[in-house]
Amino acid sequence: MSSPKHFNTEAGSPPYRNLFHNVTVVPPNTSLAYISTQWAADPTTGELAAGCEGDIGKQSKIIWTNIVAILQELGVTMKDVVHRTVNFIEFDDEKGKAVVEASMEAMPDAWKADALSSSLRFNGVSHFHRPGIVYAVDLVVAVPNSK
């Protein structure tokens, strides 16, 4: 499968700190997988994982560990991520740095070069569905069509 093409256009707003791209084109013969909101849940209880309430770095590591597992199950890598939406209770450069560092810790080395390629939307939300959540992620991923 050819990979999605990520780039910046001359028109429009530049991406935040030029970390991401503002356009992604999906190649033919692929399907899109929409990965719903991933948050730092304990999969056995469905509750916020112990010890990470309010900690954006710990939550990010849990979230990205789970996202890596989902992408591996789909047979894709970070280069196939078309778009991501990230949701923060509050955001500043320090929180952004903590999220990027924790996500890189969770990611296989071979994926890191493509980790920040996809287009990005980030939202400030007033609250999440569970107390203590401070960060969550949604993804759109290009997945090869089965033959």
Rank of each mutant, 00 (worst) to 15 (best):
W64A: 09
S118T: 06
D93F: 06
V82M: 05
K112M: 09
H83V: 04
R17I: 06
V86E: 11
I67E: 03
N145S: 13
S60W: 00
F91R: 00
E94C: 10
L19C: 10
I63G: 04
F128H: 02
V82D: 03
T45E: 10
T77N: 08
H127A: 15
H83S: 12
G46A: 08
T65D: 06
P4Y: 02
F91K: 00
E73T: 14
K58A: 07
G46M: 06
R17M: 11
R84A: 12
L48Q: 01
V99Q: 02
K112F: 11
V143S: 00
I35E: 01
K5T: 14
N66E: 13
G124N: 12
F128T: 03
E73Q: 13
P15E: 04
F91S: 05
T37S: 12
S146E: 15
V100S: 12
L116W: 08
T24Q: 05
D55M: 08
N22V: 04
E73F: 15
K79Y: 08
Y16A: 06
A50V: 07
V141L: 01
I133A: 08
N29W: 13
P27M: 06
G57I: 02
P28W: 09
G132H: 06
L19K: 03
M1Y: 14
A41V: 11
S2K: 13
T30N: 14
S3G: 12
D138F: 08
E90I: 10
T44S: 13
S126P: 11
L32N: 02
I67D: 01
A102Q: 02
C52G: 04
